[in-house]
Design a protein around this nucleic acid. Sequence first.
DNA 1: CAATTAATTGTCAAAAATGACAATTTTATT
DNA 2: AATAAAATTGTCATTTTTGACAATTAATTG
Lengths: 76, 76
Amino acid sequence: MKVRNQKYLTAFGENLKQLIDQKKKTPEDVAALGNIETKQVYRVINGEHSATLSIIIAIATGLEVHPKKLFDFDID
Amino acid sequence: MKVRNQKYLTAFGENLKQLIDQKKKTPEDVAALGNIETKQVYRVINGEHSATLSIIIAIATGLEVHPKKLFDFDID
DNA sequence: CAATTAATTGTCAAAAATGACAATTTTATT
DNA sequence: AATAAAATTGTCATTTTTGACAATTAATTG
């Protein structure tokens, strides 16, 4: 992965994890509803990958939240 | 490109274009400030690619807007 | 309208993300 | 503690994005 903004990716993953918990879902639930691999969800949670827009939208779909919710946090 | 959600990518690009105009910037300005290639910005505007989170964040940086602004629109 | 500059797109190698399944680790149950 | 089930991570081939620069098209100026 291009380490352009690892800090942001980590924060993004933490926020995603919180949202999943708040929704009382599991990464598997999200993946199933979003039609992607479970591993992709974990990769994003862990900040391992700079996920593509397609995956991000799929996760929002699987989470049943508006995509902007995934970005509704601040760093530093 | 994986054609998982071309419709969304197109809408995302249109929204981005509007934001750039509103900010009275050019794709080149955004790219320069975000430290990415100008072509990347055009690719996203045109919905050609499912851009990575890194690129999306770089664009938000270059635009000087909060990343969630890039997702603040609805489809259909 | 020619010439110069700015804006946008093409190309392709290199790098990175995705998908599919296996493997491992963790958690729950007895 | 052992077993079974669930949750999380590893691997690697395939597909896709990114970066760098060239090439083209559009806009502006003289």
